[in-house]
Amino acid sequence: MSAPVAQKTISVEVNGTTYERDVEARRLLVHFLRDDLDLTGTHVGCDTGNCGACSVIVDGTLLKSCMMLAIQADGASIETVEGLGTDGELSSLQQAFSEHHALQCGYCTPGMLMSAKALLDENPEPTEGEIRRAIQGNICRCTGYVNIVEAISAAAEAST
């Protein structure tokens, strides 16, 4: 029988590092990442699950970390924007975002990159329409998405 708890010690692997922390059952995964683990690359842009700035990949699934409780991530493996590059080198997606001016203020960028990564992991040669559908859950108020779509397309081409 799993007894109800208001608080629990959870163990989570984020970008290859395992963390153990006490969390209240009510704490959202995004606040766990930002406030408890100090991984502030994942952002909050709304309070209704619409904007996608908090998108992360949990056990291979792209999701919005403001609509998952931290306690639900116990035992999970999480990828965030901080894990995209390797040894200070930008990933081809990060590089393409910069080259194609796919970011202005940069606030939506971490979530946008995670959505783009999830797309390319599964579909290395997406069409423009597929790219637009893949980032539909990520709001950007700066770019009109033009250069974001271009950057993802370029990153896909570069790696195929």
């Binding site: 502030t40 690359g41 909050v44 924007v81 901080e82 910069s98 080259e99 970011l103 606030y107 960028t109």
Partner: peptide, 18 residues
């Protein structure tokens, strides 16, 4: 290339809430 981009694409920007 924009000088701002490197930190922002790595989630290393510093916004007030950080």
């Amino acid at each position: 290339p924009r000088k701002e981009d490197r930190r922002l694409v790595q989630g290393e920007g510093v916004f007030f809430d950080d």
